[in-house]
Computed example of a mutant assay.
Amino acid sequence: MHNKLANDHSPRKPYTAGQAVPVRELHAGHKAEILNHLLQLNDEDRRLRFGTQTPDEVIAHYVERLDFNKDNVFGVFDDELKLIGMAHLAYLPEIKGQARAAEFGVSVLPEGRSQGLGTALLQRSAVHSRNTRIETLYVHCLANNKAMMHLAQKADMRVEYAYGDADAYLKLSPASPATIVEEAANEQWADLDYAMKANLKKSNQAWWWFLGKPGLAR
């Protein structure tokens, strides 16, 4: 974390998020979807997400080492149950005398961009952080990551720049009955949304099979 402070507040059919985005908490059973999502990022997207050039084998190692008992991973699925947006909320080691913090990292595939998915993933992570006694949500990225900087500024995060990197901080209020209810409602809604999409996909597959066109089923 840097000390220099800047007072800056400043193919498939596209996925349409609308005004609200269902964000689902992921678990170890989603590792294949997470890996597929990250491997679809091009070289520049990988550089912006991980801060450096990131080959396939490094991404595979990253996914394999995800610890769902320690950290949290959230995702947004499209109508075909493709993971088009995901966020990794990593809890930082506790340091005596310092606020408890978690680091937020996010990636969105091209078909899901400019539709509020990053904002929804950040909001979901912030609420979960509050409910797990995290006091500071932290983002580390390259200073030229315009999408991440835009997201940080929208959330009124404090931004520090140094040596081509940027650190953004969001101070969080303690949990409240409202945040606990909000997270529970979000979880139920996202699970229902996923179940509905899964049922619709199965129905479509059965329909194409009935019509004798199984090759069209996804």
Rank of each mutant, 00 (worst) to 15 (best):
P177F: 10
N7C: 05
Y161F: 15
R113S: 02
N36H: 11
Y163H: 13
C141A: 14
G51P: 09
E33I: 04
A162M: 10
A206M: 09
R124I: 03
Y62K: 06
S129A: 15
D67H: 07
N186P: 00
D43V: 10
W208D: 13
A126F: 01
R24A: 14
E64A: 14
Y62D: 08
E111L: 11
G164L: 06
A126R: 05
V181S: 12
A155L: 02
N131G: 08
N7R: 10
R65G: 08
K13I: 12
A17C: 11
N69G: 15
S114R: 15
L216C: 06
G164Q: 07
Y91Q: 11
H9I: 08
D71T: 02
G51W: 03
A175T: 11
D167E: 13
G112V: 07
G116M: 09
D193R: 10
R113G: 01
V73W: 04
F74R: 05
L170E: 04
E25K: 12
K171P: 00
R130N: 01
H150C: 02
I59L: 08
Y91E: 06
A195M: 12
Q153T: 07
A217D: 03
L5N: 09
S129Q: 03
A217K: 09
Q123W: 01
A102S: 14
V23R: 02
L109Y: 10
G212Q: 09
M1H: 09
Y62F: 15
N3M: 13
M1T: 10
P110D: 08
A99L: 10
W207S: 06
A195W: 05
L192M: 14
K4Q: 14
K202V: 09
E57F: 13
H2Y: 11
R218E: 11
S203F: 05
N186H: 07
S176M: 04
G85M: 03
L172C: 11
A28Q: 10
Y91K: 13
N3A: 10
S203A: 14
E25R: 15
R47P: 00
A87R: 00
S176P: 01
M157H: 00
T16S: 09
H61K: 12
E103C: 06
